[in-house]
Design a binder for these strands. Structure first.
Lengths: 231, 231
DNA sequence: GCCTTGCCTTGATGTTAATCAAGTCGAAGG
DNA sequence: CCTTCGACTTGATTAACATCAAGGCAAGGC
């Protein structure tokens, strides 16, 4: 692990409140690994032996069943993933693959579990992190059950604009086929929906999104703090 | 609160590992409340001031958006709910209503948050509980995204049979309209699907479910530990 | 340069599920 | 006993979405 990486990790909510000693102990038993693009680094069902931290690149979390597959999340630096599985010492519920060349820190699950028994502040951080993750998945489930695909796309586009500082124009952070799977629809349907949304204040050209009429888009998306955040 | 109720609460995973002193302190600031049937006891968006424990009756967690509504979970004694919101001191993401006359214990969120800073074993229990809740929602999301409605119904019916000890016959624990909403479909569609499943090893008469051909049902449901549990 | 390759789009078609509209049934109450 | 109400069912229709098939387009390799 490179020394300049430690402060970046330390800044994560999960690690910023623990003692320096605890942090150093935990990271001492961890190690970095570089993965090429498209590598399936975690397979659902495998035992969860490590907490993962993305330092560079990006990772797709996805799920499989009966020959089908869907994207559950896309993670970018700096963030952790599959915390819950490591804590319960249970099999991963999701698979993970790299979307590009990606650098990951692997923190042994057993050290993690030992650490939050010794460092109360760390335990509190884990609690907060898990609660946030839980709420995030609940939001996703609400969006899936309460909105149709057009509304989900509209909400997503509006939300991305807000994350880009309210910009009227921005670039999609992920490929469209991935986005479609994430939103629970087929690529074809996403393509058609984006076209339809031209009547609702959105223009999409390649990965470029332009909001032509924010009011109209908002009327369709009906953004809701309890689904779209912020927390 | 009745004295005979304390041991029941103590037996919950969330409370069984904390010190007796901590448990008594926490419950001393709590109080019980009885609600009639059909009462909306929690409204999504309200501040989360209490952890809730169901002692008698049953509670529906549901979500609303744009005039639509869907069931997220049904809770029965003895269990806790909306732990994550209380921890983050954030608004509830879901509403809750009683399905029958229901008795609830209310634990003040602030006492809860103070307690897991003082009692490490309790903090660990909270961590484990949250991780379990998180995984449970992820399973639900996977089921929604990877299965069509017929497969969801088949999985549900098979799973209930297993929960009933592998019985070939059992009673549905919830009304069908609720079940439909929980499974992400309309009551009409559930009704038709149950009829269709007669060709796949299931016979439903009112709330009575009879598995006529477990093998056929299993072939359709394709139960998966990573979706249907057990954990 | 040309040829791949992968991603995206488009149109035609088929399937799935929601909606609309009656109608049945059984439990609760007058 | 009859009425009423709510839950459930059923059929007809419509809307939403997936699938299938074909083609466009841009990036990268030879």
């Amino acid at each position: 692990m490179r020394p300049e990486e430690l402060p970046e990790i330390r800044r994560l909510h999960l690690f910023c409140d623990m003692t320096q000693a605890s942090f150093e102990t935990l990271l001492a038993s961890s190690y970095a690994q570089n993965f090429p693009q498209g590598l399936e680094m975690i397979r659902q069902g495998d035992p969860a032996d490590f907490l993962h931290i993305v330092l560079e690149g990006s990772v797709e979390l996805f799920a499989q069943w009966s020959g089908r597959e869907c994207t559950m999340a896309v993670l970018r630096p700096v963030s952790t993933f599959i915390l819950a599985a490591t804590i319960r010492d249970a099999p991963y519920l999701m698979s993970a693959r790299t979307l590009e060349r990606t650098r990951i820190i692997l923190v042994p699950a057993s050290d993690l579990r030992a650490m939050f028994r010794r460092d109360t502040e760390f335990a509190v951080s884990v609690i907060n992190e898990l609660a946030a993750c839980y709420r995030s998945v609940v939001r996703g489930a609400k969006s899936l059950k309460l909105r149709n695909s057009r509304e989900r796309v509209a909400s997503y586009l509006l939300r991305q604009s807000i994350l880009a500082g309210g910009a009227a124009s921005y670039t999609l952070p992920v490929e469209k086929r991935l986005l479609a799977s994430y939103l629970g629809m087929t690529p074809e349907n996403l393509s058609r929906t984006l076209r339809m949304l031209e009547d609702h204040g959105i223009k999409v050209d390649g990965a470029r999104v332009i909001i032509t009429d924010r009011e109209k888009l908002t009327a369709l998306a009906q953004p809701d703090r309890l689904i779209d955040g912020p927390d």
